[in-house]
């Protein structure tokens, strides 16, 4: 990555504008709504994830059973909460703030395990500029995050939103090629960059 950001002046949304189910009201501190809410959001996510992780460690069998039986359906908002807090690789902002990730572009199809069908989670990302070379990296970050957090009965699909990228097909193909994603996850440099992006989600 060069020192010059590829998109130096992106459009930024305030965190309080983002759709969420996490955290409470954002009007507690009117002087610095952004900062206070941001902290709160991060804490809530941290607690949320921490609890989940603890549960997993305590009782692996239970978790496995849970996966098999699949009792708690997920929804688009939950997926949004998981990925909107990922950091952009070149701005100190989240994918939610940059509107790279939007709630309306997340689609969840529930599995029907009794009939033998797995479900799916499809996310369409909107790169900040049409030639953004970081689109693949952002997509990889989202995939890693969802692969780690979402129940295995959902297949994850990550695509660039139609008309928002010059090499749409190329990026889509790469992001959904299991073998390439797995190989990328064994590349120490990439793992480091993705890790930094996911730091703000405190996995």
């Amino acid at each position: 990555m060069s020192d010059e950001p590829i998109n130096a002046n992106p459009q930024v949304k305030d965190v309080s504008q983002l759709p969420t189910r996490l955290g409470g009201s954002s009007n507690e501190d009117n002087a610095f709504p952004h900062i206070s809410y941001n902290n709160k959001l991060n804490n809530t996510i941290r607690n949320y994830l921490f609890e989940e992780e603890e549960e997993e460690e305590e009782n692996t069998i239970d978790v496995e059973q849970k996966i098999d039986e699949y009792d708690e359906p997920i929804d688009a908002q939950e997926i949004y909460d998981l990925i909107s807090s990922i950091s952009d690789p070149e701005h100190p902002l989240t994918l939610g703030q940059l509107s790279v990730v939007n709630l309306s572009d997340i689609h969840v199809k529930h599995p029907d395990l009794n009939k033998g069908y797995v479900g799916s989670v499809n996310v369409k990302i909107t790169p900040t500029i049409t030639h953004c070379s970081l689109a693949t990296l952002i997509g990889l970050g989202i995939r890693v995050r969802l692969d780690r957090s979402v129940n295995k009965s959902y297949r994850i699909g990550i695509y660039v939103k139609e008309g928002t990228h010059q090499s749409e097909n190329q990026v889509n193909k790469q992001l959904n090629d299991k073998e390439r994603v797995c190989a990328a996850c064994e590349n120490p440099q990439l793992v480091k960059v993705v890790g930094r992006m996911l730091d703000t989600c405190t996995i």
Binding site: I67, D68, P111, L113, K115, G116, Y117, V118, S153
Partner: peptide, 9 residues
């Protein structure tokens, strides 16, 4: 056989 490896691929 459907779900031959549970929910795994």
């Amino acid at each position: 056989k459907r779900l031959a490896h549970g929910t795994s691929e």
